[in-house]
């Protein structure tokens, strides 16, 4: 054996930035996360050319999955044109040669921060969510070792207690985004800081969702056709944001999750948060032939 046989020809950068060894580790951990839905699997989480907390976990997953035929879409807060989404999209394309798109329907891989698109995702699509804090128990137990034991014991009593206390104090559950959810009846996970509006989209969906926290070095997944149930009490139903009756002032789209835009006169206007859905709605309104996909919400409601 010689030193030469241990190395490969020099390249200034590996395909998809990550070296083969980093990719293999991510592959192994992705498989484990699919095998135990909602359970956080630790991984080494290499440094990437972006700061921790800016989507480095999801980025590592995307870089591992990408190939030159895979069409990629990146959104941040629902928008393709957000500066961080633009930066990540440019990086993914630069290091992999993968085609990019803004249209949910054209994408094979969607990397997203804090939103799930309004149009249905299909069986051939993978959603990769950026996760700042993978531990749903953090607010009741900041110590990771104890939280791990609580997951092992399916000991979620303090989580329920916290929700109950909110109802007692405020008359409702005050959790905003990151609503804790039971996956496959066993592991409580955070769905990442997506709004409550988006959590039901994960339940028994057709697509695979991978959630990855680069800074905290945890990866977890929701395979297709997996039960994802927000933690609720039998007599206090799950409540999504009250956006069902709002209308987008730009596109006229109605019944989707909205961004609130404060106005000079003290009122608020609303814009549809899924920016490309908004763009397509405007084009359709203006008479262009646009392919608008079916949506999870119909008339502002999620059909049972």
């Amino acid at each position: 054996m010689s030193l030469k046989s241990l190395t490969k020809p020099w390249q200034s950068m590996s395909y998809g930035f990550l070296d083969p060894s980093a990719k293999r580790e991510l592959r192994r951990k992705m498989l484990k996360s699919v095998a135990v839905p909602g359970c956080q699997m630790p991984y080494a989480s290499r440094e990437v050319p972006m700061a921790r907390g800016w989507g480095t976990g999801a980025l590592q997953v995307s870089l591992t999955l990408l190939n030159p035929q895979m069409c990629v879409k990146v959104i941040d807060q629902g928008a393709d044109d957000s500066v961080n989404a633009a930066s990540i999209r440019r990086f993914l394309a630069r290091v992999s040669g993968a085609p990019t798109t803004l249209d949910t329907l054209e994408a094979h891989l969607i990397q997203s921060r804090h939103r799930i698109p309004e149009e249905f995702l299909r069986e051939d699509q993978i959603l990769v969510l950026q996760v700042p804090n993978p531990e749903p128990l953090r607010s009741v137990q900041p110590n990771m070792s104890i939280a791990r034991q609580m997951h092992a014991d399916a000991d979620y009593g303090r989580m329920w207690l916290q929700l109950y206390e909110q109802i007692v104090r405020s008359g409702r559950i005050m959790q905003g985004a990151s609503y804790p959810s039971m996956v496959n009846g066993r592991h409580v996970m955070t769905p990442s800081p997506i709004p409550r509006w988006d959590v039901p989209k994960l339940n028994m969906s057709k697509h695979l969702t991978i959630l990855s926290a680069g800074r905290e070095k945890r990866i977890f997944a929701v395979p297709p056709y997996t039960r994802v149930e927000p933690l609720v009490f039998d007599d206090v139903p799950y409540q999504v944001e009250d956006h069902g009756a709002l209308t987008c002032k730009r596109s006229g789209a109605k019944g989707f999750f909205m961004n609130e835009i404060p106005q000079d006169d003290g009122t608020s206007a609303f814009e549809v948060s899924d920016s490309e859905y908004g763009v397509k709605s405007i084009r359709q309104r203006d008479g262009e032939a646009v392919n608008l996909g079916g949506t999870w919400y119909k008339h502002g409601e999620m059909p049972k």
């Binding site: 700061a51 921790r52 907390g53 800016w54 480095t56 941040d76 807060q77 629902g78 957000s82 961080n84 921060r113 804090h114 939103r115 700042p132 005050m174 905003g176 985004a177 990151s178 800081p193 997506i194 709004p195 409550r196 509006w197 800074r215 944001e241 009250d242 956006h243 999750f257 909205m258 961004n259 609130e260 948060s273």
Partner: peptide
Amino acid sequence: GFCIHFKLPHYVTFQSSLD
């Protein structure tokens, strides 16, 4: 990294809390 990530927009999560 986590410290500077708070510069990123958080309006979706903020909207959710506001609601």
